[in-house]
Each structure stands twice: as C-alpha cells, then as structure tokens.
Simulated assay, not measured.
Amino acid sequence: MVQHRCPDTRWSWVEIDKGALRRNTRAFKEKLEPGVRMMAVVKADAYGHGAVECVKVMHAAGADQFAVATVEEGLELRRAGVTWPILILSEPPMECVQTLIENDIMPSVYTPEFALAYGECAAAFDKVGKYHLAIETGMTRIGVGWKDALEFRHSIDFHRGLSCAGTFTHFATADVPNDWTFGLQYRRFTEAVAEMRAAGVDCGLVHCDNTPATVLHPETHLDMCRVGVGLYGMQPADSTRPHISLDPVMSVRARVTRVVYPPVGSGVGYGQTYSVARQNVQIATFPIGYADGLARSLSGKMDVLVHGTRCPQVGNICMDQCMFAVDVNTTRAARPMDEVHYGDLVTVMGADGDERITAEEIADLRGTINYEVTCNFGARLEKVYI
C-alpha cells in the first residue's frame, strides 16, 4: 500500500514524483540527435512543480540549459546553487541589467535600447553580457521582425560588452499537423538565420522548437529544443499523444478533516447549492479551495477519489476548503462505497487504485488547459517530493 506523506501544518499538498520527471526528461532527450541540446523550461516554478528540485532532476536526466520567465525566477535558481545556463524568455526591464550581469542570467533581447544598456553594464564590470536574440516570425508576441534581424544585429554588434549566445523564435501552431502557419514561421526563421550567417554574424545556438515541435518535427530541432509542459507528464496536444509516452508528475492530495451524516434536506456550503436528498449520505470536508488552485467554477462538476472510488464534489468550493458526498452502501446509492472517516486520503488529481483524475480532465471541466491547472495547484499547496 502506498504511504502518502503530508505536511504537519495542513492536510493538503501536491506530490511531485521525481521518478516520473526523470523518465519524461529522458524520453525527450532520446528524441534528439547527438549534439542537439535540450533547454528545460522551468518558468512559473516549473509549472507549479517546484523549479529548484525539478532542475536538479532534469539536469541529471539530460537537460543542458534552463529557461524561466522572470528575473526573480532566475535568481531563485542561482541562489539555490544552480550553475547551468539560464535564459529569460523575454526582455526584462532595463533597470535589472546589473542583476543579470552579476548573476550570469541571459536575457532575451529585441530592442536596441535594452541591448546597449545591457552591454554598457557588462563592460563596466569588465564582463561580456550573453543574450539570445528573439525573432518574431508570426506569433505576434515578442522579438525583432524576421526581416529586420540582420539590421538589428548590425546596430548592436559593435559593442564589446555583448555576445549572442543564441537565436530563437516561438511557434504558434506546432501542435497542428500539416499547419501552413507553422511552415511559414519556420521558413521565415531559417531565412533570417541564413541571412545573418551569410553576413558573418554569429547566431549562437539556434532554436525554435517548443514541446509539440520537439515531438512532431524532428527536422526543426536545429541546435537546441526548448521542452516545457511535456517534462511534467502532460501532453501539449492530442496530436503528440501517439508519439511519446509520458508519466504525470504532479498529484494533488488531502485528508478528510470532518465527516458527518447530515439530516435529509440539509444544505451544503455557501449559497446552499446542494441539498442532502436521502439518508445514509455522508458529507466530508477537506482543506483545499480556490485559493489553492481548485477553481470555484468546478463547484458541483468534479469528482474526487476516496478509497479508489469517485465521489462527487458538492456545494460551492470555498477559498480554503470544499466538500464531497459519499453514498454509503445502500440499494439506492448512486455510487455505493464504505464509510469515509476523519483522516482518510482524498485525491483531487492523480491516481488512487484503478481510478485516475488527470490535469486534462480538470482542465476540460474548467474550459482551460492542463498547464494552468498545475500552475494553480502549485502556487500555495506545499510540495512533497517522492
């Protein structure tokens, strides 16, 4: 029987399976030809999984570099002793250039004002500021226009404080098979890189593949691939599912903090949106709510797992707690099961026995994507690594 460790201070937590994370990292690394590097994306605290611990596992399993979204995320890794290359996947505010130089964190660059301020700061410290040039090819989000990349490089390459460590773009539709926009973006990117190289410009590591492109388009792997959500055991799209097997890394658990047999007709929760309709129904409470990432919009729509059985969540989800109903064994029970007791394990996401609730199931109920589900759960719930 699996033993689930929980925090001493609150009976709710996320479990992070380091073995699954290791297997997923190796699965992606095996898709790359020798010499192609892998940049693991650990922004948003590794999609809610805990960036510092995940980086250690990923590097041991084959990840070469790491990508974050903010300066503070990069600093967290440096403070934890991470020495491997770190890239910020956007151009941060100009005011932070000294912090970047002092901590050897590479920014994405796409404005001359930032690039030159960064170079000036690096030169003042007798250092060279490494950066990756972001090229806009059709995502319409960040980057230098693909037709303007060479001119941009000419405008900043005179500075002795700058060194281009990489050149990249980001695909908008890599998960769509035979998509015209994907092909157009790739052509624009490779044309921009070819033009710079023909002019004698060093592009550093050239990379464009996100998770779905890494799986579906080996011809576009180039020098490095940026792998994100797949590392955490979540498919980026249905199109990738037949091509790579992944193990979910995060589970969300709790323990029952109260259980009662309320009288028939009793209401449950704010607004009394659920009413106990018959005898032999237990209402159990556990300490996870919308402040922990369990969206209030899931109220009355989702299940939890207890004793390997699905139980319906009932009443409005509260900020820090919610309730579920148990039809204790009767001939009229919709989902008959044994009594639930104080301290029993509740699985909000993950496996219990033969049943599993996935991030995709929760995302579908919320009308969102699996990425958001794990990011939300990882924001407040304590992490337990197994």
Rank of each mutant, 00 (worst) to 15 (best):
G228H: 04
T190R: 13
P218Y: 06
H159N: 09
T169F: 13
R197H: 03
H154N: 13
C164M: 15
G166L: 09
H221M: 06
H221V: 07
G183E: 14
T214W: 09
G200Q: 05
G230K: 01
R187F: 07
P212S: 14
P242N: 04
E219C: 01
L246M: 06
G145Y: 12
V215G: 11
H207K: 02
V227N: 06
R197D: 04
T190W: 01
S239L: 05
E191G: 00
G204R: 02
E151G: 09
T181S: 13
C164H: 09
T169M: 14
R241S: 11
N178K: 14
D175C: 12
L205N: 03
A172I: 02
D148L: 05
A165R: 10
A174T: 06
T190A: 04
L231Y: 00
H170S: 13
P177S: 08
N210R: 02
D202Y: 01
F168D: 01
R226G: 00
G161C: 10
A149I: 11
M234P: 00
R160P: 11
A194V: 07
D247C: 00
K147G: 14
Y232E: 03
R226H: 05
D247P: 00
C208Q: 09
H221F: 08
E219P: 05
L246V: 01
L162I: 08
P236M: 11
A198T: 03
I156F: 10
T169D: 03
H243I: 02
A174H: 06
R241D: 04
L150S: 11
Y186C: 14
S245C: 03
F171T: 12
S239Y: 08
H170P: 00
G228I: 04
A194E: 12
Y232N: 01
G200C: 06
Y186M: 15
E151C: 06
S245Y: 05
A237I: 01
P236E: 03
A192I: 07
